[in-house]
Computed example of a mutant assay.
Amino acid sequence: MLLPVQDDDGAPFWTYAARGELRVQACAGCGEPRFPPRPCCPHCGSFDTDWRLMSGRGRIWSYVVPHPPLLPSYADVAPYNVVLVELADDPRIRLVGNVVAAPDAALDSVPAERLRIGAAVRAVFWDTGEGVTLPRWQLERP
């Protein structure tokens, strides 16, 4: 499994995820949310940030189902889904992840034929056991 690379701008995202919270960086100056996290607001240029708590609800905006050949770390679990989720709190914010049957379920735990563009999902959190908690997604109507 490949783990995310954490940088200073995104570190709070992972800290909140470890607490089971989905938070998105927002400008403390103009209030605009932004993802991925970055040091400066693209709207007003401010370096002041807040981290807003999101509901964890969203919709599948797009998805793919990779099949082998893949990176060796993923070949054994393919095919699996990779989704782009549009957050209900702010549809301009989209996060990449996987739809799973349970927070700790395998990447291939939800058959691809159950996925649909526009399907409602909610965030769940999986402690990888390697110092990272990953946000994942579950279908609202399993």
Rank of each mutant, 00 (worst) to 15 (best):
P66C: 02
L134K: 08
G20H: 05
L22C: 07
A106H: 15
V5R: 15
P4I: 09
W51L: 09
G129Y: 07
E86K: 07
C27F: 04
Q6G: 05
V24I: 15
R38D: 08
T49A: 11
F47A: 15
I93C: 08
D48K: 12
S109L: 03
P66G: 02
H43I: 13
A102L: 06
G58L: 03
C44L: 09
A102S: 13
T49F: 03
R122K: 01
P39H: 14
A105Q: 04
Y74H: 12
A78E: 10
S62F: 02
D89A: 00
R94C: 05
A112T: 04
A123G: 12
T128N: 08
P12F: 12
V124A: 05
V5H: 14
T15L: 10
A11N: 10
G56R: 10
M54W: 06
W126N: 12
A102K: 11
L71P: 03
P69M: 12
V77I: 15
W51Q: 09
V132I: 15
P68I: 11
A106P: 06
D8E: 15
V110C: 12
L107K: 07
P37Q: 02
T128P: 10
D108H: 10
Y63P: 07
V132R: 10
P91S: 08
L22H: 06
A88T: 11
